[in-house]
Amino acid sequence: MVSETPLWEVFIRPRNGLAHKHVGSIHAADEVMAVQAARDVYTRRGEGTSIWVVRSADIVASDPAQAGENFEPTADKIYRHPTFYEIPEDVGHM
């Protein structure tokens, strides 16, 4: 049996000025074919001006089991948000 064609994640910049955004995945044997496949699959309706592809296997993700220790400690640091500070309305927009 033929071994499987690798999976790639596709990121597209919808137009200049915006960041590349994850849009989905494709299979391709190498990076050149991956960009071509991403173009043919994900930009059929003028959705993009630039494509990034990265091998799915190369993505390092945070562990969902550590989501608590990773992301919850910031919840009580409300002084990082502008609404924490009281400025009289007369001062105007700040």
Binding site: V2, S3, T5, A28, A29, D30
Partner: peptide, 15 residues
């Protein structure tokens, strides 16, 4: 299509 998929993988390996 098997030979095509196989060829693409073989070429990727050579690259």
């Amino acid at each position: 299509g098997a030979w095509v998929r196989e060829a693409a993988l073989a070429h990727a390996e050579k690259r």
